[in-house]
Design a protein around this nucleic acid. Sequence first.
DNA 1: TGATTTGATAAGAAAAAATTATGATCAACA
DNA 2: TGTTGATCATAATTTTTTCTTATCAAATCA
Lengths: 309, 309
Amino acid sequence: MINITLKQLRYFEALARHGHFGRAAEACAISQPALSMQIKEMEELLGAPLLERGARQVRLTQFGEVAVERAREILRAADELGDLARASRDRLVGRLRIGVIPTVAPYLLPRVVGNLTASYPELDIHVRETVTPKLIQELGDGQLDTAIVALPVSETSLDETPLFDERFVLVRSAREANAPMPNADSLREMRLLLLEEGHCFRDQALSFCNLPSGPPREVLDASSLSTLVQMVSAGMGVTLIPEMAVPVETRSASVAISRFEAPEPRRTVGMVWRKSSPLAGQLAEIAEIVRQAANNLADQSLGLLPTTR
Amino acid sequence: MINITLKQLRYFEALARHGHFGRAAEACAISQPALSMQIKEMEELLGAPLLERGARQVRLTQFGEVAVERAREILRAADELGDLARASRDRLVGRLRIGVIPTVAPYLLPRVVGNLTASYPELDIHVRETVTPKLIQELGDGQLDTAIVALPVSETSLDETPLFDERFVLVRSAREANAPMPNADSLREMRLLLLEEGHCFRDQALSFCNLPSGPPREVLDASSLSTLVQMVSAGMGVTLIPEMAVPVETRSASVAISRFEAPEPRRTVGMVWRKSSPLAGQLAEIAEIVRQAANNLADQSLGLLPTTR
DNA sequence: TGATTTGATAAGAAAAAATTATGATCAACA
DNA sequence: TGTTGATCATAATTTTTTCTTATCAAATCA
């Protein structure tokens, strides 16, 4: 390991360019002795003379010629490091790893990814879809930059910002479309189909029915909302789905969607990231874009919802 | 121009490798605050965070990942500069530009180049053959590393070392082989063929005859010893050549070679280089190799010379 | 030869980098 | 829920490095 400094390389480069200690020193905005000393130091560190000091002129040695080329490469690389830094701080570029829970991903992401790509053309978006605990862990491990989950998360190391609120709606088979709307308590008596363990949406639904979350219930738990709706369509029971899923999930199923009476079940979906993330600033911007995409989606979904009293 | 230091790059690289300030500092043989401060300084200079300081671990930012790669490249290039220096100081490598006067080059060089290449396999020898004033000028300009010329040169900026002494011998047509040997004065009366202006050998020959050097004489001046000998062989006159040229030049010409009586004309051929040349040490070694090559050559030449009384 | 140019050297001042000591934060744990 | 231990940041001080001014020595130029 050689202990030359970049400063010395700069001085040396200037000296090679000017072939004159005084002028090189002037170009470096230092005094001539300072330059002399640094060059001398550099030669001592390298153990080989960089230049031949003639009486009237300074000439590079053969090694000096090689060295100045190498020095220029090094200096260029160092300057490029500065450029890289500027590029990375001015705008959001490169990879953005975003995690999304499964009860949000299929409905929100198609919009969001399009909008983000429009706003940040140089952004390379990676999506990870899994349940909240895994997302939070991966966020903590630095495998994700941000995650979209149901709030609150209440991790002290994370910042969270709400994106949108959404209602839960009841999904019944089409045949039951005109049956009276069950309330939270009567739901408990019905065959309520739910997602498998780990999904926050399962816990949210159970909580609405004042049921303890935990071990499996009567029927096999589903791994996606699509499956749930298909099961309902087959007459196996009823379920809850988030409002945002309605347009997509009812397209290919003969089910009836009904809203609850107040107090309607609902959840807040938000975005979280490490407080320490250097992307924090840009992530707030991104949250705003996601928020707008969600609002557009909600405006469209609302029209589809029959209001059941 | 960004003012980061190589030291900072080293610290940063260690930090990236260890992912831990304390251990990285230890690896750098400095205290942890010193490392912290340098990393902080580096981030300020770059204007972008290199790492995310979590409570329990340190993680590179995306930019940090890019930066550490670049940093490694820079550090490697700097270390290679050290290697280059070592290579250039330990032994003579690379280009050696050597100038030789035309009355020496064809006879001495074949041997010398072979010996030099044997001693310094990595040496790349460039030969320039021209007259002394040009050689001296090019030496001064740094276009040559050394020159082999007739001594003395007496340039204060140059060091000179003798290589060998050589006699001048008379070349006559074969028909005149048994004619009495002319002395310096009688030579003046004969048709003495000489090299063109600029060749030191011309001046040396003229000086031996006590003639003024200068403007052309009776016949057209030759540009090489070969031409001179061929002209002599054709009966156009007599000439002097250096002893070393005898074996080569008499091979294809029917001429008689005769030595003068004392005081024999002679010259000293030597090697010169800039006093300031960093190769000075190695050039002295090279001079020794040339000296040996010249001695071998002289031993062989001597046998060929008839001693005329 | 004397004046001028040019790089090296010396001594002191200024700046940078290191050290030790201490603080703040946070996770782990009782 | 306070305590502990680990970890990085900050502060004050010392040490080291770098720079400046002044001056020298060598060599060219007139």
